[in-house]
Design a protein around this nucleic acid. Sequence first.
DNA 1: ACCAATCTTGACTTTAAAGTACAGATTACT
DNA 2: AGTAATCTGTACTTTAAAGTCAAGATTGGT
Lengths: 151, 151
Amino acid sequence: MKLSAQEEYGLRCLLRLASAGEGQSLTIPEIGRAEALSIAYVAKLMRILRQGKFVKSVRGQTGGYTLARNPENIPIGEVLAALGGRLFEPGFCDQFSGLKRLCTHSVDCSIRSLWRAVQSAVDSVLGGITLRDLLQKESTMKMQLASRDRY
Amino acid sequence: MKLSAQEEYGLRCLLRLASAGEGQSLTIPEIGRAEALSIAYVAKLMRILRQGKFVKSVRGQTGGYTLARNPENIPIGEVLAALGGRLFEPGFCDQFSGLKRLCTHSVDCSIRSLWRAVQSAVDSVLGGITLRDLLQKESTMKMQLASRDRY
DNA sequence: ACCAATCTTGACTTTAAAGTACAGATTACT
DNA sequence: AGTAATCTGTACTTTAAAGTCAAGATTGGT
């Protein structure tokens, strides 16, 4: 259970854009310089973010990227799903069916419900957090998280 | 954020062994047949489980694997950490430092505390679950999970 | 002693993710 | 019009994970 590079770097790029300020736009080279990523790689990440409707792009000499919505309307859960998929998603059992066609996993599949429980814990953390929250300081965010009483 | 094949299949093999019953042993080919995995792959997985002290092996003609501890003393969180690492572990920032030596990630690194929050939510789900719980039926386990009131 | 069944280990091959390259399209500026 | 800066898309190369192979070591049965 690991975070993919795409999730980590993609989210960083988005946060960088958000921190540029309301309506401000950044170019791919600017983001790349700020995050120490290659231009080509940032381009790939921004494309995914654009397809997920998190950012808008403008072409041409004065082009660049801006947020497609206000930070408070960008749930981090959605961003991460676009960048790296979900832990437990439809087709999971087909993907891990071993050498057989169907998931032979017997034992009443307690494992599957374990994954669902984990996914749901992750969802309730991410579900309550938007890009706006990430823009605030670490301490502030921690307090917010601590105030949630259910997972 | 995905489950690795090693986590999924490794946990299945362990559960399979546990469901064989107290002190029962299974061979690699037996596990492979039951889980529809190749013998070589099961061998690789069992090795990891052995190194994590979750199972014990006996060599020779009547050899095989048994649980190294009682199911209630095998926390699923530990098993998954052995099979696939943790979401957020030491060295994380070195791993994702882009093209520079040090993690340039500024913005006060709100992202890092996000990962910590997610990791902690996952931990509290997994922390309360042992192999014994997985051996019980899905419905029973769900109830247990639902009764937890904090993540 | 020998054989057959097992686990053990490291190296290898295959496959998917990470990251790059390049040719094309769009726009502003002169 | 021409040029330079940008985004876009596909194809490519590199790297890490998934999965296999083969030779060796251990043990019980004959």
